[in-house]
Amino acid sequence: MRKLLLSTAIFISAIASASAQDPAETRIRQVMQTQLEAWNRGDIVAFMDTYWKSDSLLFIGSKGLTYGWQATLDNYKKAYPGKEGMGQLAFKLLEFKKLGNDAYFVVGKWQLTRTIGNLDGHFSILLRRINGEWKIVADHSS
């Protein structure tokens, strides 16, 4: 039994080490950091650069489904007018699931600290490598 537990621990450690060294996961973490920095300087357009600029982008939020990059940008601008409305965003990335060489599913927690009231919730995003760049193609935030 002890040998099985030790083997399991080594296996789990090897998986953790392999995923930590996955260049795709590293790049996706950079994309999320870029998104975070853009939001925190009040630049919604730069924040949206991490999304797929397509009419097929899917965003699922408290008001239902939104299709398209421009419609998603418009909704963000309406919901978070100005720097005070945007506040300071923080992420905690909880899960990375590789779905294929060019697709990842990521789950995380977001927290928005604002003088007008804090908000928080969870998100799940689907990212695809498109023309060599990782882009969010679907986002479910609540």
Rank of each mutant, 00 (worst) to 15 (best):
R2P: 08
K3E: 15
L4T: 07
L6A: 06
L6M: 05
S7K: 08
S7Q: 14
S7G: 11
A9N: 01
A9D: 00
F11D: 02
A14T: 13
A14H: 07
A14N: 07
I15S: 04
I15G: 08
A16N: 02
S17A: 15
A18T: 11
A18K: 10
S19H: 14
S19E: 15
A24K: 08
A24W: 07
E25M: 14
T26P: 03
R27Q: 13
R27A: 15
I28N: 06
R29V: 01
R29S: 09
M32W: 09
Q33K: 14
A38C: 06
A38V: 08
R41M: 06
F47A: 04
D49E: 15
Y51W: 11
W52R: 01
W52G: 00
K53S: 15
K53T: 12
S54P: 09
S56E: 12
L58R: 13
I60H: 03
G61R: 02
G61S: 00
S62E: 09
K63N: 15
K63V: 11
Y67N: 14
G68P: 08
G68I: 10
Q70C: 05
T72H: 10
T72L: 01
L73R: 10
D74K: 13
N75R: 12
K77G: 04
K77C: 06
K77A: 02
Y80K: 13
P81G: 09
K83R: 15
G85P: 03
G85H: 09
G85F: 01
M86E: 01
G87N: 05
Q88S: 11
Q88L: 01
L89G: 01
L89S: 05
F91W: 11
F91A: 03
K92M: 01
K92H: 02
L94V: 10
F96V: 14
K97I: 11
K97P: 03
G100P: 04
G100E: 07
V107L: 13
V107R: 14
G108P: 04
T113N: 10
T113A: 08
T115W: 00
L119P: 01
D120G: 08
D120M: 07
G121N: 06
F123L: 09
S124C: 10
S124P: 03
I125Y: 05
I125N: 12
I125V: 12
L126V: 14
L126H: 07
L127W: 04
L127G: 03
R129C: 08
R129F: 03
R129I: 00
I130M: 00
I130T: 00
G132E: 03
K135T: 09
V137H: 02
D139E: 12
D139S: 06
H140C: 04
S141W: 08
S141P: 09
S142W: 09
